[in-house]
Amino acid sequence: MTFHHPQEDILMSYTAGALGESWSLAVASHMTFCPECRSSVALVEELGGFLLEEHDPVPLSELALTVAQEQLDLQAVEQVAINSAVVSSIPVPLRDYIGDTVDEVKWQSIGGGVYQHLISTQDGDQARLLQIPAGKSVPEHGHGGRELTLVLSGSFSDENGEFVAGDIEDVSEEVTHQPLAGTGDNCICLVVTDSALKFKGLIPRFVQPFISI
């Protein structure tokens, strides 16, 4: 059971189909872990259905139905896909981007024992995997904007609490924090940001260019 969720505005936008790719990746992946957010999204989808009903009908051209009907025989029927994919700490939405397991990820060192893997998305925002060694921390940083962090394995803690697999930390630009990985497993998380992280202090100036922002 997860205890840390994305804020409601993110869930609303995700459900509306108005949320960018990087953020949607974090939300869809979190939903694998989180019955509560699945339930929230289902509720908000009802809102979408209601808004559809509420629209004044605009008539289609006379032949529109006939044209559509002629297409029907050509259509392959789709069934519910039974997913036989491997069980791993990687939720299905993320597998399209990084493969089925973390073993397939090509990591690059960014110093201090911390590794990252940049994920290619088209929405102009930044999605990456971070791997923080157990018991270590990433440099203290503030944010030019919002940051979503989804824990995939291991755990971390900061000023806002402890985050375990499935949890999302949703922080805004006012927050400066220094996540510390829990002991035990390395902490692997998906981090989405809408602008450059602002590291404080000496090491960060060295690190920042490597985080490729």
Partner: peptide, 20 residues
């Protein structure tokens, strides 16, 4: 862009402990 979608058949799915 794509819209990554939640998959209800995800083998990693964490079911609700009790009905929501």
């Amino acid at each position: 862009e794509k819209r990554p979608e939640f998959d209800p058949n995800d083998p990693s799915l964490v079911p609700a402990a009790e009905p929501m």
